[in-house]
Simulated scan of single mutants.
Amino acid sequence: MASDPRIALVDDDAAVRDALKWLFASRGHSVASFESAAALLADRDPSRFSCLVLDLRMPGMGGMELFQTLVGRGYCPPTLFLTGHGDVPQAVAALKQGAVDFLEKPFDDNALVSLVENCLSLDTERRGAWERRRQIERRLGDLTPREREVMALFLDGKLNKQIADELDISMKTVEVHRARVLEKMGVKSAVELANLLKELD
């Protein structure tokens, strides 16, 4: 069993938490369980988990509000909701906002484990893309305001002389800025840079 839990379970019902911890342990997965949304948010880093299993209806902050809070923070792991029958419309709304799926209580154990394992696989794919975006954004953040101006113009297809005229600087200065932009962004050409920035779209 993994020593560092990849699954986070948030449910205010202790009996549900205990039952699901046992279920996941029986399938080789370790779980960190939390009695409330606030408890998860107080964790050292909720985004470290690879799957979130959230009860939709809880005292205080509910599962939907917790999910929206985590999405607003940056990376939100693939999320499943556990719902009562009357909460299905809200669960469907969560799907539209990026949740992976929901299960109505009482649910089938095998169905839940299967969905969680799908989330664990999905996390690997999503987290890689998210880390890549963060890396590109960090590189962009290292550019000076002038380097950003030069970059925008050469990505617009303008020649060095046109950029120099537009910014009222020498062609040599444009060349220096252009070279620094490519170096900081980790690419060798404007085409490579354009393709890199498309990953942020």
Rank of each mutant, 00 (worst) to 15 (best):
L155V: 06
L193T: 06
M185F: 08
D43F: 10
F49A: 05
G84D: 08
V174Y: 02
S121H: 10
A39P: 05
D4P: 00
R138K: 09
S33Y: 06
D18V: 15
M61I: 15
D45K: 11
F34C: 08
A37M: 09
T173A: 10
L182Q: 02
S189C: 11
D123E: 13
A179R: 10
Y75P: 02
V187D: 00
T69S: 12
S170F: 15
L197K: 00
R48P: 04
L200W: 11
L40I: 15
A194E: 12
A93L: 13
E125I: 14
G128C: 02
R148Q: 15
A111P: 07
R180Q: 05
C51I: 11
E65A: 10
K21T: 02
H177G: 09
D109M: 15
S189N: 06
R148V: 05
F107L: 07
C51Q: 10
E65D: 13
Q135H: 09
R17T: 01
L197C: 02
R138Y: 10
V116Q: 03
W22K: 12
D123V: 14
L140E: 02
T173W: 10
D165I: 12
F49V: 06
S121R: 11
R134Y: 06
F67Y: 09
S3K: 13
S121Y: 12
D123S: 11
L9Q: 01
D43Q: 03
T79E: 01
Q162S: 15
D123A: 02
L20V: 08
R27N: 12
A38N: 09
R146N: 04
F102L: 00
P89H: 15
D4C: 08
S3A: 13
E125F: 15
L182R: 12
E104W: 06
R180H: 10
L82W: 04
F24R: 00
R134D: 04
V174H: 08
A179G: 01
T124W: 10
D87F: 07
A99K: 00
A94I: 09
L167E: 06
P78E: 07
R138H: 11
E147G: 01
E147Q: 11
V176M: 12
R44H: 14
L56Q: 07
A15E: 03
K158Q: 14
P89T: 06
A194P: 07
L143C: 12
V174L: 01
A99Q: 04
L66W: 08
P89K: 10
S170K: 12
V113R: 00
